[in-house]
Design a protein around this nucleic acid. Structure first.
Lengths: 351, 351
DNA sequence: CTGAAAGCGCTTACAG
DNA sequence: CTGAAAGCGCTTACAG
């Protein structure tokens, strides 16, 4: 069933059918009704691709989850307490506004080709990128296509200094620096001085922010940062577990450990437990994200809650409005985090 | 940049450009190379929609997560330990084979329109439906469009009796009946006789299978099924929590409770704990799914592991092969579950 | 208000 | 082996 068939049945031309489908004003109510009726009757749906070819939008946005540094292939994203909810919320929000969402996961620089392709093949009206490593070239390449783009978690000043801020572009961040400071102040308020950190991926905006806030807060309180207590990490359980094992093997432990996400915090607890150490008795732990697991493990994790729902919704609203606007625009939003105090930290008595 | 531009640059016709893009045999190596070179040089990507319009596939499959009975809107799917991994695995598997995936969540019969639309607008080559309630009319409507379709978790005999088995259709199930029997036998082997159940959604194939296997196993061992110990449920935490509260309020408790999924098992444990009851000391609990949470809560949950990864992969492989096959075919696959024994069940001593 | 026609960017018989 | 042409199913100036 094509628009031509509808036209015949309704005794009008394809042009008119198209006019009613697209809700143009210049068609008399009677004609409109007749056409609508025939459409209803035959459950006609205009071919989406033909519409797109003829200049209409695709009514679909792309969502690209980028996690380049991870190793095995199966079940990575959903186990990731950061990506999974974003995917979910983005889909929900977009669907509610009548948009489909095209998803693709990027595991290697090669895969990245796919996101450019989705744009250049005109499969989507706009796209959301999450988990992008700080690589301004990549971003600038994307932005060149001048398709509406929103980046979740990206360094705004890089955008500015590259003058990329005059495109259909938006950045959605969370206030990770402030969130980390709050967590650190809490730990310090509890009497901790030997505070370690398990870092996140340093090629990530949030990873760097959390690390910097850790350092700054320690310095502000004139607390020494001991190299052996700053553990590298990549937001993944496995590596966090082994670095904590090594830390333990080293003999000396911090009294508290700030972990750049919950997955690593949980790994830390497990590694500590495996060596007969208790949380928070022996060492206090704070995480970041407030993943589902955080409130279910034992001890319940004290963590910084990421406003993922707000961010995902804002991202969708933003792409959609960028798709609709002709004029280029650049905007940024930053959502506050919240410290959720549970059971994984304790007061230090001997200070 | 259109194929015509490439043609000009390469000194050939659009036809030839198309031939090399589509890897047709009848073009001399020299010509092919020249065209390929120009394509490379200009990073040309054929417009996906134009290709689709002209008869090629869209290289995208649809994934529709249906969860009609749930209430609030935000963050439902990802919190759902069943949907989230499926989404993830499907995306990964499809991506790896060069397919995009279009996702849509269905929360109401109205939304269902969207999945039909995706097909009738020819946005996708084929689709995967997960969480579909047993509604043969819906399925038959979909199947009429004769687009390749795979259903995860659906009653095969319904398909057969409606003669829907001569379409591009496949069903992917898990062996929930056998899995439940295994769990029940384990409980009975531990000496339990008063075994209750929290049911899943009964409009779901797996929900019904798990319930039936519970009943059958009880009967086989001539154990009485007490009405007050069979609790209705819908796979969600909230309702499970309150029915367990009611059960507790009733005064009499089973010694073991089989829960049709982990979310409800965890809710049961929480409800029990809230009343000062201990698992497994006071009541043994077994779940179903082996969600991430299962191994992290306290006590670690004994549960039946669902082969979600296998199912998701099989579903993708199946749609893709259905998309490629001209001939209609109907097939079914059923993957075994596995009982994972952890800490939430104990031997009953007084029997 | 409305139809005929051109155009969107491809693919694929068809003819040579 | 290869080009001209028709066709996929829409939309949108253009003319009336």
């Amino acid at each position: 069933m094509r628009s031509e068939d509808i036209a015949k049945l309704a005794g009008v031309s394809r042009s008119t059918v198209s006019r009613v489908i697209n809700n143009y004003p210049n068609v008399p109510e009677a004609t409109r009704q007749k056409v609508l009726e025939v459409i209803q009757q035959h459950q006609y749906e205009p071919n989406a691709f033909a519409r797109a070819l003829a200049g209409k939008g695709t009514d679909t946005i792309g969502l690209f989850a980028i996690s380049m540094s991870e190793q095995e292939h199966a079940s990575r994203i959903y186990q990731n307490s950061y990506f999974a909810p974003i995917v979910d919320l983005v889909v929900d929000t977009a669907n509610a506004q009548g948009f489909y969402v095209l998803i693709h996961t990027i595991y290697s620089p090669d895969d990245f080709h796919k996101v450019k392709q989705a744009f250049s093949q005109k499969r989507i009206d706009g796209g959301i990128l999450v988990g992008i490593q700080n690589d301004i070239n990549l971003v600038s390449e994307m932005v060149q296509q001048d398709a509406p783009l929103v980046l979740i978690d990206y360094n705004i000043s890089e955008i500015m200094s590259e003058h990329l801020d005059k495109n259909h572009l938006a950045i959605i961040n969370s206030k990770d620096y402030e969130g980390t400071v709050e967590a650190m102040e809490y730990l310090i308020g509890l009497g901790h001085q030997d505070i370690g950190i398990i870092c996140g991926r340093m090629d990530t905006f949030s990873g760097r922010e959390r690390h910097m806030a850790y350092k700054d807060t320690m310095q502000k309180h004139e607390l020494p940062i001991q190299d052996k207590f700053v553990l590298e990490g990549n937001f993944l359980k496995e590596t966090a577990y082994s670095s904590v094992e090594q830390l333990i093997a080293g003999g000396e432990l911090p009294t508290a450990l700030f972990c750049a996400n919950d997955a690593m915090a949980i790994a830390a607890i497990e590694a500590l437990n495996a060596s007969g150490l208790q949380v928070p008795t022996d060492v206090s732990i704070v995480g970041f994200d407030d993943a589902t697991l955080a409130s279910h493990i034992n001890p319940k994790l004290t963590t910084v809650r990421l406003p993922i729902a707000e961010m995902a919704k804002a991202a969708v609203d933003k792409v959609i409005s960028l798709c609709q606007d002709e004029s280029t625009s650049f905007s940024t939003m930053s959502f506050p985090t919240k410290l959720i105090i549970r059971e994984s930290c304790s007061q230090l008595h001997d200070c």
